[in-house]
Design a protein around this nucleic acid. Sequence first.
RNA 1: GGAGGAGUGGCGGAGCGGUCGAUCGCGCCGGUCUUGAAAACCGGAGAUGGGCAACCAUCCGUGGGUUCGAAUCCCACCUCCUCCGCCA
Length: 432
Amino acid sequence: MLDIKLIRQEPDTVRTALRHRGDDPAKVDRLLDLDTAFRTLQARIDTLRQERNTKSKAIGAIRTGKAEGDAEALQAEVRTLGDILTNLEAELAANQHARLDPAEGLLYQIPNLPDATVPVGQTEDDNVEVRRWGTPPAFAHAAEPHEEIGERLGLLATEEAARLAGSRFVLLKGQGARLERALLNFMLDLHLAHGYTEVLPPTLANADTLTANGNLPKFHDQLFQITDWPLFLIPTAEVPLTNMHRGQILDAGQLPVHLTAGTSCFRSEAGAAGRDTKGMIRVHEFRKVELVKLVAPEQGLEALEGMVADAERVLRTLGLPYRVVQLCTADLGFNSAITYDLEVWFPSQGKYREISSCSLCTDFQTRRGQTRYRDGEAIRHPHSLNGSGVAVGRCLAAILENGLQADGTVRVPEALVPYMGGIPVLGRPRAV
RNA sequence: GGAGGAGUGGCGGAGCGGUCGAUCGCGCCGGUCUUGAAAACCGGAGAUGGGCAACCAUCCGUGGGUUCGAAUCCCACCUCCUCCGCCA
């Protein structure tokens, strides 16, 4: 959430940001009205409470013989004050709810301010390509969708997955299963070598955790919930990682925090019916290696560049062609101030598809989660960043498609060969 | 699942219902002393909200309740620990 003080001081900045995102700038004014009412009410309540406290203490002093006076009369006065306070406090609670309730509070409905450098746009078509790396393979043979390659080589068993769990699930077997495991280990090892600390968090999280991250209550329908338990399957390891220091005040020396985790991610994909119905692109459960940073605010932009580079390194080391896209204001996520997507080349689709999304969330998430650090005398909110480094399933799919050879086998990227027990090629050459 | 115990400031640990936001110790910060450091001594220091400020309010696991007044009493819940049982 945004700092209410910022909204008071620079309402126009916030209105403009909302407009650029295609959101309603009038939210600012409704919030400011509530805020003014809150401050008036709070001041009245504070004054009355002060009076009550003073008089109660006077009663105490009289009762213990330290002062003279009419305790009975004071008692009656305080009781009256108490009644007035009860009413005002109910009014205050209603105001608090309207402003600060995670589900309905107006403050929680205002998205993060886009960074000044973010291109203003109306739709995702206004996203800006930043750079390309590698060249899409020029096949003499036809491109083949990864799910067909996978089935053909016995790496992937869609029908079995459907029998076990339903549609939008993946079952990998043989070298396919091993390739997924190899990728996960390869990615984690790569990030460890560049200063990240590995974490293996629970893949279930409670409502508080998901609320702090902004997944609840707004995106409840995107989550799988455990029946009869107040727990949800995490949609990304970003959830547990950004919550690790929730409610804490860190020492400045503890920053920057660089975390990585390879976990399963679970998404209901509600509303995605009919899209990417085949293969491993859009499924209910997939592995992803996540990167999360907490840094001093001054380091935010630099840390984002570093994180994008860390994600790019995965694709470069695997030799997969990709491009980097900066999201425009309209496409930016609720929490994010700047986002770069990495899109990898899929030969069968003839286009780049998202495989990573790296965002600088400034102090938006850390304020919501009450994650702070001590900077000399001051207590500040660090900036949080999250990014995929990268989605394992989509990466596996990209390797199958981009590594497809004329004989129908798939070339294993050199960097993965050691993780595959020395196997350089998947599948047997098909008879010519 | 059964039986007990505990949740207080960075940590440890006090707190007859009435100046308790909270004694004290450790740790931390500043100062005196010292060439410098240590020791010793003196002083400072929680968080949140409102206010230009002085200051005021709120916070002792969470939520209710009793009371003129609750860290202290009552109820519910949560978490952690110990023992027993079960178990990858």
